[in-house]
């Protein structure tokens, strides 16, 4: 193991412990004594206010969040009807939606990106539309999607589709347009047919740029799915966050936040590996 790697890992761990320590200090209960009825308050009132039992109010300490981790991760695949499922099942639903929306976006964006990248005319014609549509928040599409598609599940996938589309489209076009002239000229000299040129010359040359676009798209899709599921509900990690927010159960919300972060990181790593795989040295 390289000493550099060891050092950075140690530093990461130190930052993490420090963070937990500060968190613990900041959320320490004011008095450690057992909860008791405040003076001048009837016992029944205190019981109804939940003051006689230990109650979580304010920000939860790390131990509380740790318990939430143990609770949810020890039984990730339970299914108690449509409104209460394990975290594994919720994640499965979210990943399924993201995967489907992302795949559809790739099917549209990559060929279209090729067309735009290879033809300056199409590029100029479509550019204004892309520029207007690109900055629209995907969630702004939601009411429109619900109204026209008339199905909340498909609307969710549509929102993922529409937000994954632009980075992939633009990057594909950019990558295709940036293929070195010499290579294209060689292809022309050899009289390579257009389809073969696209697949054997342009695609390998533009692949790193296309995958960068895909990586950005996936990042955005994972950001959006949580918000979309909070809006549409039913299943998914976003619904989980919303349901726990209902109950003002912050430890569970923090648990979900960490899980969202970890899954997002795994997805990003996956695309980074793919990117390395297609990168070539000139």
């Amino acid at each position: 193991m390289k000493p550099e790697f060891l050092k950075s890992t140690l530093l990461s761990l130190a930052i993490f412990c420090r963070f937990i320590g500060i968190w613990q200090l900041a959320t320490m209960p004011k008095e450690s004594a057992a909860p008791q009825t405040p003076a001048g308050m009837s016992a029944e009132y205190a019981a109804l206010m939940g003051l006689t039992a230990p109650k979580q109010s304010g920000f939860p300490p790390p131990a509380e969040v740790g318990r939430a981790f143990v609770k949810f991760l020890s039984d990730p695949f339970y299914d108690r009807g449509p409104n209460d499922k394990g975290i594994g099942i919720q994640l499965g639903h979210s990943l399924g939606r993201v995967g489907l929306g992302f795949l559809l976006a790739a099917i549209v964006a990559i060929p279209l990106g090729f067309a735009i990248g290879m033809s300056p005319l199409i590029y100029r014609a479509l550019d204004p539309f892309i520029q207007v549509l690109k900055p629209i928040s995907p969630l702004a599409w939601m009411p429109l999607a619900l109204y026209t598609i008339k199905d909340s599940g498909i609307s969710g996938i549509f929102v993922i589709f529409i937000c994954s589309l632009w980075p992939m489209l633009i990057n594909t076009a950019f990558g295709v347009a940036g293929v070195r002239r010499e290579w294209l000229n060689v292809a022309r000299t050899l009289e390579v047919r257009p389809l073969r040129k696209a697949l054997t010359v342009i695609l390998p040359a533009a692949a790193p740029t296309i995958l960068t676009g895909a990586r950005i798209s996936m990042g955005i899709a994972w950001l959006v799915i949580v918000a979309a599921e909070m809006l549409v509900g039913g299943t998914g990690i976003g619904y989980f966050v919303w349901n726990e927010w209902n109950n003002l159960a912050l430890p569970n919300v923090i648990f979900a936040i960490v899980i969202i972060g970890v899954v997002g990181m795994v997805l990003d790593r996956f695309f980074a590996t793919l990117q390395k795989f297609v990168t070539y040295a000139e």
Partner: peptide, 9 residues
């Protein structure tokens, strides 16, 4: 019975 996020939904 399906829990739903808002009345508009």
């Amino acid at each position: 019975v399906v829990k739903t996020a808002s009345w508009a939904l």
